[in-house]
Design a binder for these strands. Sequence first.
RNA 1: GCGCCCUUAGCUCAGUUGGAUAGAGCAUCGGCCUUCUAAGCCGAGGGUCACUGGUUCGAGUCCAGUAGGGCGCGCCA
Length: 584
Amino acid sequence: MNLFRDFQTKIVAALEGMVANGALPAGLDFSRVAVEPPRDPAHGDLATNAAMVLAKPAGQPPRTLAAALVPVLTALPDVVAVDIAGPGFINLRLAENFWHRRLAAAIGAGDVYGRSSLGNGRKVNVEYVSANPTGPMHVGHGRGAAFGDALANLLDAAGFDVTREYYVNDAGAQVDALARSVHLRYREALGETIGAIPEGLYPGEYLCAVGVALAARDGRKWLNQPEDAWLPSILAFAVDAMMALIRSDLAGIGIEHAVFTSERGLVERGSVDAALLLLEGRGLIYTGTLEPPKGDKPDDWEPRPQTLFRATQFGDDTDRPLKKSDGSWTYFATDIAYHLDKFSRGFAVMIDVWGADHGGYVKRMKAAVAALSDGKAGLEVKLCQMVNLMNKGEPVKMSKRAGTFVTLRDVVDEVGKDVVRFIMLTRKNDQHLDFDLAKVTEQSKDNPVFYVQYAHARHRSVLRQAAAEFPNADFSDAALGGAELSRLRDPDEMAILRTLAQWPRVVETAAETHEPHRIAFYLHDLAAAFHALWTRGKDETSLRFIIAGDVAATRARLALARGVGLVVAAGLRIFGVKPLEEMR
RNA sequence: GCGCCCUUAGCUCAGUUGGAUAGAGCAUCGGCCUUCUAAGCCGAGGGUCACUGGUUCGAGUCCAGUAGGGCGCGCCA
């Protein structure tokens, strides 16, 4: 489906033919021969660097080599012109008919247009969100959620076997603090006066309902009991409640993970011991004393021997501790067990989506995965930068006291899930993102969500109008695919056809680079081309999508609109955004 | 102090994984509404791609260094 890939294959075959008949020396490496759209469409439809990358090994100047390639490339099907340009680029121009056939094929493929077999069914694990189960999701989590889910959809569209996963950090000091906080709210629910929430506990009012629910379930049995008696039970109850809250936040933006893995479960099953035993067997664990960190030194730093992982052998800057001073596992230790768990479930490709504040953790985790899998598995970490929540250009003060909203749910309630998801994907993951509540709901060109949705709604609108204009005509996709597309010849129309034909390549490139934002920019470009052509119809009635009294011409033009609608819908589907039928 | 990330038009950002004359939106200026939706479109101006070297046919892109910004640096996750 990716025409650039198709032509790359054809061109390499042609080059091999030249080797066979002696026009090129044997033993050339064709892997660097690329076929891409030229930056400037005026140069042609396809450009290849073949002559330039082969010049040196073939012992010929690039332009001489290019000249020898021209007749061979001219002979390829659908090629109507071949030019040599600049240092030795070869530009190919394809027949108009080729682009018409691509549109017909796209309409024929329908919803699967752009899907790829690039991944060849390989298993990929995408772990994202993994917010601590101690409260509702905030806006920053929302970015990781939208990003991770779009990346998963993208990899799925590119032919990978994707598992969406959430790691539940339900062990450690944070959830102990959660349990204590809930116990307080529980006492409050049973009529006690609890006063101010102590430092170190979670003060959020969302825990009041959890306390009430606990009182309803267990009555007064945890009153006046030592912490040891109630902590495990209340912790489990509280974590369940928080995960229910988070799942509901996720459902609010249309996200559902297939697998939830519990940190506590890993610890209780002995997975951490097993993982560390594995590393120990490979001589990667030892007892040693670390240098104190430079810069901001901890007040209570005392050198002491601890259990360390030889992360430096795998590119990390220092070896990393696995046990805290109280003997319990560090977060890193349980995370090692978790990634071994993923590996043992058959994932050689793991992608973790983290917040940028975890950047310092990447090297050691990659080191651990390399060590655990003996180099057979790879971990890629995508760090999502911060989201600056704005309103009309002013930063939103994140003050709970002032009642300004900070939770993801509040933002979704304010602007809608589709807007949140799309805007979160309009920047590369490693760039800061301004999320302006006023701007994202504005109906203007300034708002990319609106602009792209408008293109889809316009295509629907014109199809409705056409059906009213020609009540007896068949404008089904089957009919549009068979339209007389040779009527589409205007340069702007041809430009849209070429853009539509690039869609499969866009999907593959975005999937390979793990960069969903490329889809957003492509959709914006496609929408712009469509809006521009639409407006030209004001002056040139022959460019309108509905041509009065001419069903055949209308059908051809509707096919173009349908192609745009189809691809916009496909792109929005990857983002988990519902295409709009009308803008009202 | 060390590590990771970032630096492209006045502002917010893309840049097809090393290609040709570096692009878009906003803002500024100038045009287009008896219309299939003007919630839109067309055009103009605006650049030392932070800086200095290097790698090669070719560098915004890769490497090294410098400057500025962000994040992180045992007993949080």
